[in-house]
Design a protein around this nucleic acid. Structure first.
Lengths: 222, 222
DNA sequence: CAATGTATACCGGCCAGTGAATATACACAA
DNA sequence: TTGTGTATATTCACTGGCCGGTATACATTG
């Protein structure tokens, strides 16, 4: 594995991210990715066994950054857990206002590959969503919510996030993102309230919150 | 327009519904639809100007039935508005347990045609979702919730429904559908409670509820 | 030289859409 | 009743193009 090969491989992945995320997996040909990467198709096939392989690489690239952005948005927000969760939606709404915003690549890929349940890209999508859910679950547990309730709540917030991705993509109206945020905050507060009856009067310890925003989660695009 | 032509046209649409919904729009060729309909491709192009046209026809076919099923599930459920809304999710969960369940055709089509915002199929999808939202909004207004609050609540329930469609399709776990139902019920109850302070003690008049279930909303498939 | 990486050129197959001709059905005249 | 015209409905055969993937050869570098 020479140094130069890594560069070429990364250039191909970068092109794949832009095109696959921007136009969809089935709408983009391998030739198009190769062209955008400034590489012959044969070179692309030297670095990736198949198009499916390249698709998986594209999503694996997005996993970590997406999760980091979520954490960042949560950490830098002010207020209690409910406020911080709602802040995620507000940031998502800001991203969605960019005309090139294309929703969630994991969700969209799972739709495009609906009849290939074992496809590595689907597996990657499931893992990513689970990772976000687990992080949220941990956040809620730290806020004093019982394990099973925290899990259920995390799932409900995930449902609202992914619902917002889908609905905003359809209607192109970020207002839905804010409605989802309000719903999430309401659910978190309700859960916090039921727990508070046997716990101390204040639900969550206030976290830090200093990092700068920007990152936008709108996945590449020129 | 002879009688026979209507039959052929309907046969083509029926085949299109099965294939497009079952495998996705881009994954299914016009030849495949024609073959499934027992018709030459040229005949198909006699009845539909283009594939895009056929896609639109497929979704227009699904609009009314889907809405009717939702209403039915709501009407035949017992309990208050929150219970009835939750019943929608329970029925959806039952549908999602069928192995051939493929989520929401409108949502999936909007993903597959992401860069064609004016496409008739996208327009049909928006209209359908709005219709469901408007119906829910009316339901909430009848239950005594103020106009703007009812609208917001309807949007939040839609977000949970569409989120559940997406997430269950990804994870293949109908448990998310039930979590979404619980979230929806919780949101409805919270809204009912805030209104009840100035209204009468009981939020919703109990509706009828007599028709038989079954219908499954899992869109065709052999 | 041998391993790695890149390029040209090509393949079989599928895909959306079409041209030209034909079959069917009904309207109306002889 | 038969014949003819016209609109509808359907078929076969085809095209130009793109698509995923490959055979082969050439370059660069240790």
């Amino acid at each position: 594995m020479g140094e130069r090969s890594v560069t070429t491989r990364e250039r191909i992945i970068k092109a794949a991210v832009k095109l696959f995320h921007g136009e969809g997996i089935r709408a983009v040909s391998v030739d198009a990715v190769a062209a955008k990467a400034g590489v012959t198709k044969r070179t692309l096939y030297y670095h990736f066994r198949s198009k499916d392989n390249l698709i998986a690489a594209y999503l694996e690239t997005r996993d970590q950054p997406n999760l980091v952005v979520f954490r960042q948005w949560f950490d830098e927000a002010k207020g209690d857990v409910a406020d911080r969760v709602e802040a995620i939606f507000q940031n998502l709404a800001r991203s969605a206002r960019h005309p090139k915003w294309k929703g969630c690549g994991f969700l969209r890929t799972s739709v495009e590959l609906i009849n290939m349940p074992g496809h590595p890209a689907i597996v990657a999508g499931r893992a990513h969503k689970k990772r976000v859910e687990d992080w949220l679950c941990g956040v809620f547990v730290e806020a004093g919510i019982e394990g099973p309730d925290a899990r259920q709540l995390a799932r409900q917030v995930i449902l609202l996030i992914d619902g917002a991705f889908s609905v905003v993509l359809l209607h192109r109206d970020p207002g839905y993102m804010e409605a989802a945020g309000a719903a999430a905050a309401s659910l978190v507060r309700a859960r916090l309230a039921t727990g508070r009856e046997k716990d101390r009067p204040n639900g969550a310890p206030t976290a830090t919150g200093d990092q700068d925003s920007e990152g936008d989660a709108r996945d590449e695009d020129a």
